[in-house]
Design a protein around this nucleic acid. Structure first.
Lengths: 221, 221
DNA sequence: TTCCGCTGGAAACAGTTGTTTTAAACATAA
DNA sequence: TTATGTTTAAAACAACTGTTTCCAGCGGAA
């Protein structure tokens, strides 16, 4: 069982280093030396650095999508009118996100990786995630649509991305923010605390009054 | 005046490339060849790649802080009780952010750079921005504090970062999101449209009801 | 004119990158 | 035993990185 050891040791080391420094700033030599495996092992087991990056994500996202689909199945079964209250949807998503990394890995690392996936160039990664895991997101959006029928489609689209930004930004920059917060307010902040604070804000954001209609752009003066 | 030409040509090219690919993924050779200047010009005029990166930010942030301080001065002068309504504060900030890049450069690039500054490792950049421009942010936070006296300090701290995440995330990923939105909703979205949509959401987020008090963490079962 | 500081061009520097190849060791299973 | 798939070791590969050096040209000042 030495083979599994090598693969998981590479993944464990790589995800931490990627989360700390980003993808381009982390060399294979740094990973393999810290993981105490041979340099060639990465290309042997994964094929390339790109594939390694995708594998790191897959290890989180595969169990997440499975669990999230299951959770949504149960939720839909409990509401036979097909309409699930917004709070329950958000609650379910939060619970699933919390559960998955808790099994073996750090939630902090997971969120930081998600943040990187959005901000780093790495076109192949965005494409990979979209193609591989886009369907869960689509399903979730459709359920949110039924839960907020009064919201115009375009408005809901944007607001979902607004709150997505809030969550990813906050949780992926958690370490730096936590340092500031603890220094200024002498208060320890766990991820669960943060989610507790996040919930009313997200609900309020989605239920905010509609913006005034767009005015035709006036000639600049 | 050939010297200024070279410097600004480097900056103009660098900011676009940085925004598109990130810092580590953009080599000096790519910049200098696209800008049609000599490779050595970067180290000659700026000293190093790090300094180039900081110079790119300074070109945006220097005029921004000046204008923002002025705008806040005027705002404080108009409210002699020292309390400025939250909506006015947000409105002023949005206007200033919109004005600065409009002079010469693209707002999209500016926001993407801000997003990179947060997510990319680049410790030197965060330190530089914090030391160089932290005071404007501190002033703004203090004004927000007076505008929302009912909010506990820690709660306001976190909510400000929540909305900061929303804005940076949305505006820095604008291109990708716009593509999806236009395909699905046949609606063109300008940055000003987005800010119009953003306003009620941000206000609602800051004014959301307080979360329930934290429960002591139960032993996992 | 001569001189000097600034700018630009081309080349070279030294180091790192991802990847591949060679080889030898190792375990497990047919 | 003979295979088979893993793992390590060491080295080399070609490409690319940021940085530095050397030298030619330039403008304006003496």
């Amino acid at each position: 069982m030495a083979q599994t050891d090598t693969v998981t040791r590479i993944l464990d080391t790589a995800e931490v280093l990627f989360a700390e420094r980003g993808f381009a700033e982390t060399s294979l030599r740094t990973i393999t030396s810290k993981a105490r495996v041979n340099l060639a092992a990465v290309n042997y087991h994964f094929g390339s650095k790109k594939a390694l990056i995708q594998a790191v994500f897959a290890r989180y996202l595969d169990p997440f999508t499975v669990r999230f689909h299951h959770a949504l199945d149960e939720l839909e079964a409990r509401h036979d009118d097909g309409v699930i209250p917004l709070e329950e949807l958000l609650e379910t998503m939060a619970r699933t996100v919390l559960e998955v990394p808790a099994e073996k890995h750090s939630l902090k690392v997971f969120m930081k990786l998600l943040g990187l996936a959005y901000s780093q160039a790495q076109g192949h990664l965005r494409r990979y995630i979209q193609e591989e895991y886009g369907s869960v997101f689509t399903r979730f959006v459709e359920l949110v649509r039924r839960a907020t029928p009064e919201l115009p489609d375009a408005e809901r689209f944007w607001r979902l991305h607004f709150v997505l930004g809030t969550v990813i930004f906050t949780l992926s920059g958690l370490d730096a923010l936590r340092d500031i917060a603890e220094k200024d307010y002498q208060e320890h902040v766990s991820v669960r605390d943060l989610i507790r604070r996040l919930r009313p804000v997200v609900v309020a954001a989605l239920n905010a009054p509609l913006p005034p209609p767009a005015l035709p752009r006036a000639k600049a003066s």
